[in-house]
Design a protein around this nucleic acid. Sequence first.
DNA 1: CGCTTTTGACCGGCGC
DNA 2: GCGCCGGTCAAAAGCG
Length: 222
Amino acid sequence: MQNQGLLEEQQEMPTPMGFFSTFPPNNNITSCPPLGCHPLKAFNIAAPDHHHALPTETLLSSLSSPKHREHFASDFGGPRLLSLQRSSANFWAWGELNECLGSKKNGVDDHLGVSAMKMKRIKARRKVREPRFCIKTMSEVDVLDDGYKWRKYGQKVVKNTQHPRSYYRCTQDNCRVKKRVERLAEDPGMVITTYEGRHVHSPSHDLDDSQPTDSQLNNFFW
DNA sequence: CGCTTTTGACCGGCGC
DNA sequence: GCGCCGGTCAAAAGCG
């Protein structure tokens, strides 16, 4: 079957990468996801096409938390589309999405809770690939206010680009989520933010001030 | 003073 | 095996 071949291809894909494009109103970066919930839950992963886009209302209806539905509705109200590009480079992300949606995980992933002191040795050897996705935003500011607190740990000029790539790590203890921020060479006004991993906590300034519910916490794994 | 950013060094993966 | 490249480390500097 075709699925079989696709699965094998997923195993070999070195870079799990979903591409999450947003078209926020007024180029206002503070209104971009992620906001602690799992934005990719919004996508119809069974879609066979290569670049699948869904109307906002469809995406919103598939969000599990009413609070997030409400939040996304206010942020992305109107006819804008969100899209997850399906390409060979994205098979991993789609596979992991399937896993994420298909089986409600038993709370915590294997990698969570690994102490920081082991990081250095683990990083080199671990074959467990963190799920990733990108957000493309038109913005003058590099770093999106996504509700989490980040610490910059590196900057690198990558080949064939004129803009440096910045590396950030979530400042929360035991949270290993990272993100990379770079500008498009072709369009310097466009910022590409690549998230890797899942948060094990709520955003530092949450959607509301109350304690998160269990279902919200589940969402925060993304 | 504590936290964050900067930046050169280092490391591992990968292609040749 | 070697060199290139992306990603990370960590000491020093910056900042509130």
